[in-house]
Design a protein around this nucleic acid. Structure first.
Length: 546
RNA sequence: GCGCCGGUAGCUCAGUUGGAUAGAGCAUCAGCCUUCUAAGCUGAGGGUCGUGGGUUCAAAUCCCGCCCGGCGUACCA
């Protein structure tokens, strides 16, 4: 909000000087002596204008028409930075504006009339979710929330693969356990099967329902096991997601692409565009023709498509469904498919600029400095559910959000279990609870609050710092969404909480004179709304008491 | 071999798209509760930004080489 105000002024001045080819940067100086806001515009213009930065800076200032009651100081510093210092009056007006937004502070209309689809989790129903899926789920869910706050119409979608090899593997694994339990303890378990104990549980549940009537290992019977396993796992997955406050309303399954003939149609279209050929009994995609390194197999010699084909068909569907933006959340292990899919979809005539692919790196779980292994197939998996049982959904969400998506995330189980000030989640929630506590006390004591609020009573430095920080909130939401980086928001909330705790220690509310009391109370309320809105977006609860 | 991501304080990580004296949390040390919740606040120490070059008024940030770690490079998804 502050930046917008100042950049408009600067644009006017530059227009007067007939300078039109520039990029305007406004930064918050690290050093307080350098004002509230700073621009390097004069330095970047030095070369094209062939003038000294200081001269240009002076020219700009001379042409700047501003309200002296709002900006208290403008100076040229260093090699040509222009530093602006705002007056208390400016912040008071800012706070008035923010107060008018009420509960909706932070909501925007940038995405009005635009449809976005965010695809996340998308784990195949071959087992329960683990920590890696968790990161995917939380990033996707939070981005979806951010889009909603920007005014987009958001579809939250889960794509799952219920055809193909992995699912047959699941069926065979369940079947083997089934036989082991029923009639043959030595029945061979498939080498690349799913070794987790949950498979045994699925087999037991299966027996309870169906008994021994599907004892023959026919293809038809295996399908029965597959269906049963798929549903069993899916119920578990949905349940886990629910516990994490992740709610997807749209499910897209791979099978439907076959059933509706979409795969066949796609192959046909690719063939017509001369993007496929046959070799060694398989059908290949001519990806080299589209500028990629190697051609890849689209249909195996078995007649079954590789994952690529349905992936392409699915993305084609997303375009046809009319979304303005398409967001995919993938783990780093899926990175190989991205160029193939995008290049092919583009060749089919779609604008792939609409697609944003968010690749997140892996998560490692550590306990007492030791890494805890989490492999689904080996069976020694630490499931997301177990983690939620141990530390709670708020902590899981926050820990999975608080790093940039591009860095490996170390989930420290000891720190997460810590129910104390060491745990960063509580720091934010505590700020919220503290404000609740004050508001509660005001209510209990039936202190009369006058309706007229005079923000000019707020003159302490912490008070102005707090207002300044609060005013950044809408921009933070925008940035976090634009850059696909939820941690921008969690970092911001930490900083906001710090300033609030600071304010809390320096400034009393209850017991101050009427004018100050009312102004500070309102400031605290607005802080609370900001924290609440931020936590809502992160999908974390805001406790009234701690 | 090739491709993608990362290497910043003892540990985990930020770093506003090239800006001013590189930051935070945890850990360590020293202080602050008869006052709205001490799950808080104040202060101190701690750095060859992996490494070698280059680009310019200015590089943790951009370009090139090298080293280390993760992932990928399937007719698995």
């Amino acid at each position: 909000m502050i930046k917008t105000y100042l950049s408009n002024l600067l644009k006017e001045a530059l227009e007067k000087l007939k300078i039109d080819n520039y990029t305007l940067n406004l930064d918050y100086p690290k050093n307080l002596e350098n004002g509230d806001l700073s621009t390097n515009i004069a330095m970047t213009l030095a070369k094209p204008l062939k003038k000294s930065p200081k001269q240009i800076a002076q020219d700009i200032i001379d042409n700047l028409h501003y309200d002296k009651s709002l900006i208290s100081k403008i100076e040229i510093a260093g090699n040509g930075f222009i530093n602006f210092t705002f007056s208390a009056v400016f912040y008071h007006k800012l706070l008035e504006q923010i107060a008018n937004y009420g509960q909706n502070f932070g909501k925007q209309e940038i995405g009005k009339d635009k449809k976005v689809i965010v695809e996340y989790v998308s784990a195949n129903p071959t087992g329960l979710l683990h920590l890696g899926h968790g990161r995917n789920a939380i990033i996707g869910d939070t981005l979806a929330n951010l889009y909603e706050w920007l005014g987009y119409d958001v579809t939250r979608e889960y794509y799952f693969n219920n055809a193909g090899n992995q699912m047959r593997n699941l069926a065979k694994s369940i079947y083997a356990r089934y036989r082991q339990i029923l009639d043959n303890p030595n029945y061979p378990f498939p080498e690349d099967g799913y070794f987790g104990d949950y498979i045994i549980q699925i087999a037991k549940d299966f027996i309870a329902k169906n008994g021994d009537k599907v004892i023959e290992a026919t293809d038809e019977n295996l399908k029965v096991f597959q269906k049963f396993g798929e549903e069993w796992n899916f119920i578990g997955i949905k349940n886990t997601l629910n516990r994490l406050n992740v709610n997807q309303s749209s499910y897209f399954n791979e099978n439907s692409l076959y059933e509706d003939g979409k795969i066949k149609a796609l192959l046909e279209e690719l063939h017509q565009k001369d993007l496929t050929y046959e070799k060694d009994g398989a059908i290949w995609l001519k990806l080299t023709k589209l500028g990629l390194e190697d051609d890849r197999v689209a249909v195996k010699t078995t007649g079954e498509p590789t994952y690529r084909l349905p992936d392409i068909a699915y993305h084609r569907e997303k375009f046809l469904r009319g979304f303005d933006e398409i967001v995919d959340i993938f783990g780093a292990d899926h990175i190989a498919t991205v160029p193939d899919v995008l290049a092919t979809v583009k060749a089919l005539g779609f604008d792939t600029k609409k697609v944003k692919v968010v690749i997140h790196q892996f998560v490692t779980l550590t306990e007492n400095g030791q890494q805890v292994k989490m492999s689904k197939r080996s069976g020694k998996s630490y499931t997301l559910d177990e983690l939620i049982d141990e530390v709670g959904a708020d902590v899981v969400r926050f820990f999975l959000l608080m790093r940039g998506v591009n860095t490996h995330l170390e989930f420290d189980l000891n720190l997460a279990k810590e129910q104390s000030d060491k745990n960063p989640v509580f720091y934010l929630q505590y700020a919220y609870a503290r404000i609740s506590s004050i508001l509660q006390k005001v209510k209990e004591q039936e202190i009369s609050i006058s309706n007229s609020i005079d923000f000019s009573k707020l003159q302490e430095k912490v008070e102005l710092d707090l207002i300044k920080k609060i005013s950044d909130f809408p921009k933070i939401i925008y940035d976090a969404c634009e850059k696909n980086e939820p941690h921008i928001l969690s970092d911001y909330l930490k900083e906001l909480s710090t300033i609030f705790h600071n304010f809390y220690h320096h400034c009393r509310i209850i017991g101050e004179s009427e004018g100050i009391f009312v102004a500070r109370l309102k400031l605290a309320q607005i802080t609370q709304i900001t924290i609440k809105n931020g936590l809502d977006i992160l999908g974390i609860s805001s406790p009234e008491k701690m």
